[in-house]
Amino acid sequence: MEIAYFLGCIMNNRYPGVEKATRILFDALDIKLKDMEGASCCPAPGVFGSFDEKTWASIAARNLTIAEDMGLDLMTECNGCFGSLLEANNMLKDNPEKKEEINEVLSEVGREFKGTIDVKHFAQILRDDVGYEKLASIVEKPVNLNVAAHYGCHFLKPTKEVGIESSAEDPTILDELIEITGAKSVPYKDKMMCCGAGGGLRSRDIDVTLSFTKEKLENMQAAGVDAIVNVCPFCHLQFDVGQDEVNKKYGTDFHIPVFHLAQLYGVAMGLSEDELTMNNHLIDASPALAKALAEYDKLATE
């Protein structure tokens, strides 16, 4: 299986350990990730989608044509990119007038949206194309941690358009993917709540964003988790950088390490903190990694 690998911005330009872990994971799963040379920002739905639909759809469509030219479905592991690209792809496939309007823009750069590929989320590919059985086979070191699953918003919603889960009130996909690594997905209050960063809010009003994040962190901490696991680099940044910002703003002392699902699989495959660039996170991940390793050693000697 081959897939066009859409990078986006925050993963490759801030948390390259997520990209590294993904490349190693997909190697192990015999899926070829093909780089989408010259792809850009999805573009950021909060700003481009809010300011000008035509520009948003045109830049998204340009990215989609790169995958179309490769003849491959596209994979992203960012909920924001997923939302933007999936929505644009559906809109242009379903609406001939919009397609014509956007293709007129794209003709300026010698491109044409055809509507020949699908947009898929990383976690969706792990569930639907790889399958849980095969995934379990690449886990070398079960990660014995209690974690808070953070789904994020644009991974599943709007459910009618996305179709990964029939309802976003009580989904299971991320919890199941987490538990294959040996970690336990712990229930917590308002689990499906937004991290606070989306829709352009983080850059527009950081105080409001941080009040969302603080509420989520309180609920996660009350459940006694060792780490947060997400499937979106923007949520990831919000829980990592934002956690530090919450501590500074509110005088709190949250220190819950943050893993993208790809990094959790990296740990399960035995990759180091350095390879996963987790030692570059603002929130120190070493206590969680040390606990996971100690638990593993304990079980291995039993």
């Binding site: 490759n12 390259p16 989408m36 040379e37 850009s40 045109s58």
Partner: peptide, 29 residues
Amino acid sequence: VGLSELPPTTHMFPEALKEVQTICKATGF
């Protein structure tokens, strides 16, 4: 970690960046 210093995006391909700029001009963004 053994990745290319610049990702294989508009960062690595200036002609691709030019396309994004042309689009932003064409739509008046």
